[in-house]
Amino acid sequence: MKRHYISALTLAAASALLAMPAAHAGDAPATSHYGSIERAQAKRATELLDSAVEYLQKNGPEKAFAKFNEPAGPFVHGPYYVYAVDMDGFMVANGGSQVGLVGKNEIDLRDAAGKPLIRDLLEQARVNDTGSIEYRWLNRVSNHIENKVSQYRKVDKYILCVGYYTPRGSVEEAQELLDKAVAYLKKSGDKAAFTAFNSQQGGFLHNDLYVFAIGIDDGRYRASGDSPQLSGMDVRGLRDAAGKPMVEEMIKLAKSKGSGTVDFVWRNPATNAVEQKHSLIQRVDNVLLGVGYYSK
């Protein structure tokens, strides 16, 4: 049978869809899965930061910092809040922890991994007026130390920041999710399994982990928890950010060994950075199932 690959235009669209946030009708609730929550988090952080910058520019530092510090004020939205330092490292506002931080020079403040958080922020802001920093911080909602990204904007001599958490799935969690998907496919059959893998409520999304399924013979997506709209698309010609044909390698590995890992580089939609990704795959009849996790 003649193999029909997706066109270059369709391939580009597929790459964009896979690597970029899906459109949402609104902000996802804090309890939803990665396909909604991480991308909504970045969006909400940006929106709050934009509002804070505008408020500071219109009202001046004294009024703005007082407003940012209000525990139940307009610049504290659950886990999203504004914090601000001056170029000497003096904490002038912090909607998440007014006690103990505001009013002090925090240039030596370090994250949970010992990273000099404020020093790094100041060094970066001296070069770029806008950007982001990554660090490890306590998530008071989950009570776990997690990866956090803070977007920042320099306004005159102040740096305004809004952060959001980006929990990463581990290789152990990826393998556990893949094993769960394999068992479910064998037990429930193609139709029920692919429907579950494609659903936000199907039980196959965890942090930044999701299940995908690709036909070994035709190279078409049966399911993709991250981008269910791609179901039915032939992705054998899909390449990573470095030009590697990772889907072809997955199919080849599934045919020859039945399971294994394919490494490639891909944009992490949670951090918006191109990172190493590792897809664990396993063959079940004429379908390969996979779960990928990111590492830096």
Rank of each mutant, 00 (worst) to 15 (best):
K2F: 15
R3W: 13
R3M: 13
I6N: 11
I6V: 09
S7R: 13
T10S: 14
A12C: 10
S15C: 11
A16C: 10
L18M: 09
L18Q: 07
A23D: 07
P29Y: 15
K43Y: 14
Y55W: 14
L56F: 13
G60V: 07
K67H: 13
A72W: 10
A72Y: 12
G78C: 07
P79C: 10
V85P: 02
D88T: 15
F90E: 05
F90S: 04
G95H: 00
L101Y: 06
G103K: 01
K104E: 06
A112Y: 11
P116W: 12
Q124S: 14
R126L: 08
D129V: 15
G131Y: 03
I133S: 00
E134T: 12
E134G: 08
Y135C: 04
E146Y: 14
N147F: 12
N147C: 08
K148H: 08
V149W: 01
V155H: 03
Y158D: 04
L160C: 03
C161G: 01
Y165G: 04
T166F: 09
P167H: 10
G169P: 07
S170V: 14
V171F: 08
E172D: 15
D179R: 11
K180T: 11
A181H: 03
D190G: 14
A193N: 05
S199A: 13
Q200G: 15
Q200C: 10
H206Y: 12
N207P: 08
G215L: 02
I216E: 01
I216G: 02
G219P: 02
G219M: 02
A223T: 02
D234L: 03
G237I: 07
L238Y: 01
A241R: 09
F264I: 05
F264R: 03
N268T: 00
P269S: 09
A270G: 06
N272P: 05
V274K: 09
V274C: 06
Q276E: 07
K277H: 04
K277P: 00
S279V: 12
Q282I: 11
V284H: 08
G290W: 03
